[in-house]
Structures are given as structure tokens and as C-alpha cells.
Design a protein around this nucleic acid. Structure first.
Length: 299
RNA sequence: GGUACCUUGGAUGAGUGGCUUAGUCAGUGGUCUGCAAAACCAUGUACGGCGGUUCGAAUCCGCCAGGUACCU
């Protein structure tokens, strides 16, 4: 049977290094599950593997998108499955590694087939939201899709807008698409989680941010100054430097904020996976133990 | 030495004699099916110290401590 090793863990925990050890042992390419490393030119800020590492280990989904490109978890699911189908004949054990929780879940559990919203509808709903406000949209959702309205996070503009977009575009309710049914995968999934004590992790985060600054994060961010309105640049490490470049924050303050926001992000990742009972957790230092666990779990 | 002003929870910052309560940020916990490093939700009874006035003071008065500004 084919196996997909899924390596997860909070940012800066040490996934990249561990992924190399796994890729080396099983001789497989690495499928990155990082929603920001997918973009070109964000090497420093997203702690992308360096050129030499990318040359040594074949990576998928790294540095291929432009900041303005639309992307989604659903598209990721589709593309990863295609890669797996292509690679499994040569590499019966594949590795996916990254911290984008929803992307990983979309591959492991599947995501419902909901139509992609077209530009016009997106713009229409966004304009409506800006002009009429969230409550108005929510009221409309209650009429168009009462089922979803009752369980939705009605204070979250993104959720309300998306549901409404689907209703407008398809003439059907959002809940009629949202089955939330887990898909069965034709391969064995081995979830390996990396964790560290919080203090240890925070310390690594702080040091990594300082290192990014030394490596030239500010210049990297400058290249994107004209694109900062894109969601892909609404990213820790970039949004704070933009504020510095705009004169809104001092550099020291911006750096502190990057550290702080990275810590917050890492906590959200931990929260997301805390309830996932399929994950076996390890300290990143225990490489041999991790490799043994994987070998023992192969089918 | 004198005069004036200030002192609120980890930070910031409103408030004013009594309605349970500012707010914001951080911290902590959580949600999660299309831009997810996103977005959203929950959660803190604090008013410098000691007296006094009052039915009741963080709010008024006095003294003390600390701070800021100006004057000599």
C-alpha cells in the first residue's frame, strides 16, 4: 500500500529539518503544506528551504505562485492528490510537511465540492458588505440559507460573505454543498506531530525572527510594497514591516510585533491539532525515534 | 523651597458620588470546509497609601509617597 507521512507542528518547531531526515531515509520528494511558502520571493519571511536544500530534496508547492494568484485549500487538495498519483508508483512512501492546518486537513480528510466563486460575485458581495454592513448580510443569509445561518459564525464576515457568495452564484443554499463528509483516501496516512515546550518554542521563534532581519527581511518585504493589499502578503513578518516602511511603526516595534504575532500563530496551530487524535507527537530532537515510528507504521 | 497638575488591572486609556460593566492591546482558552500566517469568539472587578466627609467614594476633603511642568 502507499503511504503518506504527514509532518505537522507549530511554526519554528523544526519541521523543515525533520522533513529532510524523513525524505532522506525514504528517498521521497517533499510536499510542502505551507500556504505562504507557495509564493515566489517570500524566502526569508516564510523560512523557505534554501536553494541548496531545494536542489537536494525535490519539493512541491514551494515558490510557484505570484502574490495576486487566487488559491484555496480545495485547490490544494486537488493538486496534491494529482502529485501523489504521479509519484506513488516511484515512491510508495511520500511526505507532506507544513503548518497550514486547513490545507493538511483538506488532503487528509477531504473538502466538500463547493463551486469556486467567480470574480463578479466576490466583488458584489464585498461591496455589499462594505456598504451595508455585516448585519445586513447576515439578515440576508438567514432568509437564503436558514440552516447555515443557525450554525454559522455569524459575526465572522468571511464566513457570512462566502456563504452568501455561494447562494448568489448557484441559486442554491450554501448548506446544500457543505456536507462535511470525510473522504476515504486510497493510501495510508501517518500523522507525525512535532512539539516543544512553549518556552522553548517561543525562544526559537524570537531567535528566528532576529535571524530573518539579519538575512535581509526588510529588503525582501520592500519588493512587495506595491502588492501589500493582497492576502498573500497579509502575512506575519510582512504586514509588520509594511507598517515600519510606512513610518507607522519603528523598526524595533515592528520586530517585536513579528515575534508576538508568530507566537500567536504558533498557538493557533497547536490549538487546531490538539483535538486530532490521529497524531503521534515527538520532540524534534528524537529523529531516530520518529523514523522508527514511521517505519513501523508503514503499510 | 514654592506653585500647578497627575497617580486606574501586564500595557494603554475613558470615566465620575450609587445604575453588574469603559474600550483597546497583550496574556490565556477556543472556533474553523475556499485567499486560513486569514477571519472570528470567550475570558480580567483595577482605581498609589492612610485618614476623613457621606446611607454610599475610584470619584469630594486632608495628610503622606511617587511622578511631571513651571517658578525662586
Amino acid at each position: 500500500m502507499n503511504n503518506l507521512v504527514v509532518l505537522i507542528g507549530p511554526t519554528a518547531v523544526g519541521k523543515t529539518e525533520t522533513s529532510f531526515a524523513i525524505a532522506k531515509k525514504f528517498g521521497c520528494p517533499i510536499i510542502s503544506a505551507d500556504s505562504r511558502q507557495m509564493y515566489k520571493g517570500m524566502e526569508i519571511g516564510t523560512a523557505m528551504p534554501n536553494k541548496e536544500e531545494l536542489a537536494r530534496y525535490k519539493h512541491y508547492f514551494v515558490g510557484q505562485l505570484s502574490p495576486g494568484d487566487y488559491y484555496s485549500a480545495a485547490r490544494y487538495e486537488e493538486e496534491v492528490l494529482a502529485v501523489l498519483e504521479k509519484e506513488f508508483p516511484h515512491h510508495p512512501t511520500m511526505l507532506m510537511s507544513g503548518g497550514s492546518m486547513m490545507y493538511i486537513d483538506s488532503v487528509c480528510k477531504g473538502i466538500d465540492d463547493i463551486p469556486t466563486v467567480d470574480e463578479e460575485t466576490r466583488a458584489l458581495v464585498l461591496a455589499k458588505y462594505e456598504q451595508e454592513g455585516l448585519e445586513q448580510l447576515a439578515a440576508e443569509l438567514r432568509l437564503l440559507d436558514p440552516d447555515y445561518y443557525n450554525e454559522a459564525d455569524i459575526k465572522n464576515p468571511k464566513r457570512v460573505m462566502h456563504a452568501l457568495e455561494i447562494c448568489y452564484m448557484t441559486g442554491q443554499t450554501y448548506s446544500s454543498f457543505r456536507k462535511r463528509q470525510e473522504k476515504q483516501r486510497p493510501f495510508n496516512i501517518i500523522k507525525v506531530g512535532l512539539q516543544r515546550e512553549r518556552e522553548e518554542l517561543y525562544d526559537r521563534i524570537n531567535r528566528r525572527v532576529d535571524m530573518m532581519i539579519e538575512q535581509g527581511l526588510i529588503d525582501e518585504v520592500k519588493k512587495f510594497a506595491h502588492l501589500k493589499q493582497h492576502n498573500s502578503l497579509n502575512t506575519v513578518g510582512y504586514k509588520e514591516i509594511f507598517k515600519y516602511l510606512d513610518g507607522e511603526w519603528t523598526l524595533d516595534f515592528a520586530i517585536e510585533k513579528i515575534k508576538q504575532n508568530t507566537r500567536i500563530y504558533s498557538r493557533k496551530q497547536v490549538t487546531w491539532y490538539r483535538k486530532d487524535t490521529e497524531v503521534t507527537w515527538f520532540h524534534p530532537d528524537n529523529v531516530e525515534e520518529i523514523l522508527r515510528h514511521i517505519s513501523a507504521s508503514l503499510k
